[in-house]
Write a protein that binds this DNA or RNA. Sequence first.
DNA 1: CTGAAAGCGCTTACAG
DNA 2: CTGAAAGCGCTTACAG
Lengths: 362, 362
Amino acid sequence: MAAKSKATIADVARAAGVSTATAGRVLGGYGYTSEEKKDQVLKAARSLGYRPNALARSLITGQTRTLGVVAGDIQNPFYASVIRGISNVAEANGFGLLITNSDESQAKEVHSVELLAQKQVDGLIVTPTDTRKARHLHNLRTSGVPLVLIDRAVAGLQVDRVGTDNISAAEQAVRRLIDAGHRRIGIVAELVEEEQGELAQFMARAISGDPVDSETLYPSWQRLLGYIRAHRVAGLPIDPRLTLRAGSYSALAAEQLVPSFLDQPDRPTALFTTDGTMSEGTMRALAALKLQIPSDISLICFDDLDWMSLIDPGISTMSQPRLAMGEAATRMLLERIRGEEAPPRTVLMSAALIERGSVAKR
Amino acid sequence: MAAKSKATIADVARAAGVSTATAGRVLGGYGYTSEEKKDQVLKAARSLGYRPNALARSLITGQTRTLGVVAGDIQNPFYASVIRGISNVAEANGFGLLITNSDESQAKEVHSVELLAQKQVDGLIVTPTDTRKARHLHNLRTSGVPLVLIDRAVAGLQVDRVGTDNISAAEQAVRRLIDAGHRRIGIVAELVEEEQGELAQFMARAISGDPVDSETLYPSWQRLLGYIRAHRVAGLPIDPRLTLRAGSYSALAAEQLVPSFLDQPDRPTALFTTDGTMSEGTMRALAALKLQIPSDISLICFDDLDWMSLIDPGISTMSQPRLAMGEAATRMLLERIRGEEAPPRTVLMSAALIERGSVAKR
DNA sequence: CTGAAAGCGCTTACAG
DNA sequence: CTGAAAGCGCTTACAG
């Protein structure tokens, strides 16, 4: 193995015949130096193959120019795009990215946050796994590490956040289906456990128009709210049998539940899926059932995935600005890192309905 | 903003009434300490909310337990999966991941490598943008930073590498098409510039059976080699007009070139696309041309993307073990970091033909 | 403009 | 087993 060449500032200073302070000033780009010494130092640095040790610098300055990211799963197109957005603005500002996956497990999320904090990231972007309890995120506040949330909020945690306006987006999607004449519209959603009570109660309250604290709801619950709202606005009744609850972030779960969901009297003539994962599972099930879109069943999805424009007919969907979400979150985080004081901001981005060929008139 | 609580080992030591050395020993988990002092220190640490500063530790130990990754584009499913594989074994071994995108630009790659090196990563995994010249990667060797290459090799750079056995995989795909009776098989490939000469010369040499140094070829060139080999083995002639060269990693480029490619006398009856990007572009073009698969044209792709199993008929493809590639690369890197000396290894993984419905008999 | 000294938060020999 | 001291590679006041 090659000898590790580890020229330090002291080595360069010695070779250039100056003090380490002077060498540091030119190499670190701070303070003033005469052109002459500057040249000497630069020459010495080059010949020694000097590379600054960011660790030492960070230890003193207290900043690492590194951001930490805790995403659900980097393989998921949603997170992949969001992270790309984060990466775009991080890179443009000279920040590196330490990325971890939570796999929607709070234990892993806690572990990741701790790891990133120990590595002294200047700020953190996380997609919280649990929207109710998140002590580790509250603790971050007291340890002074700026935090921005993406996609989900956390009850009682006043920090910057960027997400999609899920209620409006879902309402728009379902309204489109209603406008096309559909009256029995099924919703395929994760709806992982909530502490605001059971699904039936939740729906009852929403239907009756009771105000629900939607802010810290998981996205799929918010999208269910939009589904309900579209029905209410149109004066349509809501049949609880038209709600398919997958219970977890799993395409397979959706795929397995859709067949019996569709095998009921007076089955839905259209489906609304609440995210990419549910959409994929639903599509696989429809294919297996040999149901033609849109002649046998209409469909509007959430999140625009590659395949939705590749298949024939194309799938209409609510497209989230994933890249822009990552970019916006990072910009907000950098502002906080720079010390900008302002009340916590919530940026809700709107999704756009992309019309393709998956909705038939009825 | 909350006061930054920054308890150091010195603070803990003071609170516990011991020396910083002792506090360090229990908090850092090295050396011996009596149970009594251990308890005192732990208690003090807890009440002070002590969190170790990994920077300070790394500065001394010379290791950061962080790996650097330079991938093409995290949004691309190929890289997303590879990175997930990397993340799996990194995490299992307590390593963090600093991830950057090169966007297939060598300038960005050079910049990323420099950034990661300054941040003192313990090792680097990169998908090299240029397989011919890569001084920054050679330099890494002399600075003692272990490096593992994924997907592509670099001429003259003797380091561990994991890739796909592209020639065999492509040969298998094309043989499948030949076996189905196809005689005019088109290949849709990136084939970005090479310095081994022009495409025509390259093909002439390959066809004549001249040995080509395939090791450091870009994957799409290797896959072209497999395409040629399948023809040679079957005793079939090769028509250069059946090679579509996109010239860049762009689905749009492929999409735009496919129509005229298919609008030629005696046009191909089957297509082989050399990666996910080419596959996507080709699919979009075929859809726009209203060509039915497989009745109008047969197709075998490379790399198994989500949509290939979602559309009807499913697309047959050569599936690369992307996750396993990332995992294997990381394991090799960790071995090097642990100091294992061994000649550089090249691990070529084989792709598996996944048969779906995109190939018709002829 | 430049250098000697102190110090960031830890770990590592070295005595005891 | 424990502590005083030195030091990792830088940057930051502070004199001059």
